[in-house]
Amino acid sequence: MDNAEDEDLIFRGLTDPTRRAVLALLGRDGALSVSEISSSFPAVGRTAVSAHLRVLKAAGLVDERREGRKRLYSLGSDQVSAAIEYLRQVYSGSLAVPESSAPEHPRGRGRPAQKTTSDPAQHGIRRVG
């Protein structure tokens, strides 16, 4: 998980209330099949739930495994990495000009002259103690 595309996937995974609810369900109940998940969201429908699961899987937020003929979904096994990517995105945007203010000041009275940089070599996990 080290490129911008993956970060975007994590954010996409979380932008939808149904996807957040699916994560909460898996966090509570462990591994579930599509039909078990769908039964918790009668208003959403099985096809849409499957689509949500694909987005969550692509973002690494859920894992899929086969058990006989069933596919079981559970929370992604590397949630720590996903969480760190999420935080990195938050902080790498931390020196940016708020988008809402940029168009109001086209001459850039003191706005950052170049895009904020975030060097991958400068961040990482450190174990302490």
């Binding site: 935080l87 850039g108 003191g110 950052p112 002259a113 060097d119 400068q122 961040h123 996990i125 174990r127």
Partner: peptide, 22 residues
């Protein structure tokens, strides 16, 4: 115990006093 460290920087076209006061 785990710490997460991030570093980044940006360049502004204003002097240091103006930048700080923002």
């Amino acid at each position: 115990m785990r710490d997460v460290i991030f570093a980044n920087e940006t360049r502004l076209d204003v002097d240091i006093v103006t930048a700080f006061q923002r």
